[in-house]
Amino acid sequence: MNYRLIIVTFFLIIGNGWAQKTAILPDLIKKVEQASVQFSEAIPNHMDPLALQADLVWSDNKSQLAVIMKATLLDGWHIYAYVPETQPYIASDLRLSLPNGVTKIKDWESPNSTPYEEGIYIYEGTIVFVQYCSVNNFKKGDVISSGIYYQTCDLRKCFPPEIKTIDLVLN
């Protein structure tokens, strides 16, 4: 008996099954694209230059969902996508708390950032972040908490870092 062949076949079967479970469903990708455009526009202001919105989008078969966060920055303001250790600014950090039975498929999807100065990259305008998740089991009323830790700056000043979170209820 060729045990090597059996082991390779076993890992191929397991690997293919795992890949199928973690592949993002095409209907969910399409729904996320539509939903990210359909958000009502949140309006930031000079005292709070970042407005945050979030929503859940489900796949047709309810086996996957996407957490969509849309941050809208006031004109002339930015947040940091990447900051080298030599710089004093605070890079944005996306937050996510999931209930039992809901797991991340991969890391957050983020838009391309813009080079700024001295190795710093920023986000400006409207930014959409997406986290795809696999749903094995959940209880109605479970909560997904999503948010962002960030520092907003314009050409003259920076506000202290803060965190904004939004709780989304599973139904």
Rank of each mutant, 00 (worst) to 15 (best):
E117I: 12
L168Y: 10
V135A: 12
Q38A: 15
Q151R: 07
L28Y: 08
E118C: 02
K31A: 15
V102N: 02
A51N: 04
S97V: 11
Y116E: 08
M1T: 08
G76Y: 03
F159Q: 08
R156W: 10
V169E: 13
F138D: 03
E118L: 13
T126V: 15
G119C: 08
L96W: 01
E162Y: 02
I43W: 00
T114G: 02
Y82Q: 09
H78V: 05
G17M: 11
M47W: 04
D93G: 04
W58V: 03
L74N: 03
S36G: 07
K104F: 02
P99G: 08
P88Y: 13
V8F: 14
A91C: 02
I6F: 13
A35Y: 06
T126E: 14
S110C: 06
Q131D: 04
L98V: 05
P161M: 11
S146W: 05
A42N: 07
F39N: 02
V135K: 06
L50A: 13
D167Q: 15
L94H: 01
L94G: 01
V32R: 09
D142K: 10
E118R: 14
G15F: 06
H46T: 10
Q64P: 12
L170R: 02
Y149N: 12
V169C: 04
N136I: 02
Y3N: 08
D75G: 07
E117M: 14
G141W: 12
W18S: 08
I120P: 10
E124N: 11
S92T: 10
S146P: 03
N100P: 00
F10M: 12
Y89F: 15
F39Y: 12
A71I: 03
P99A: 11
K31D: 09
L168K: 06
D27Q: 05
V67R: 04
K106F: 07
E33H: 09
I79C: 05
A42E: 10
W18V: 15
M69D: 00
F129P: 00
L98I: 10
N171L: 09
K62D: 09
G17I: 10
D167P: 06
S36W: 05
G101E: 08
Q64E: 10
I14R: 00
P49F: 07
T114R: 13
P111F: 10
I90D: 01
V8A: 15
I163P: 00
L12M: 13
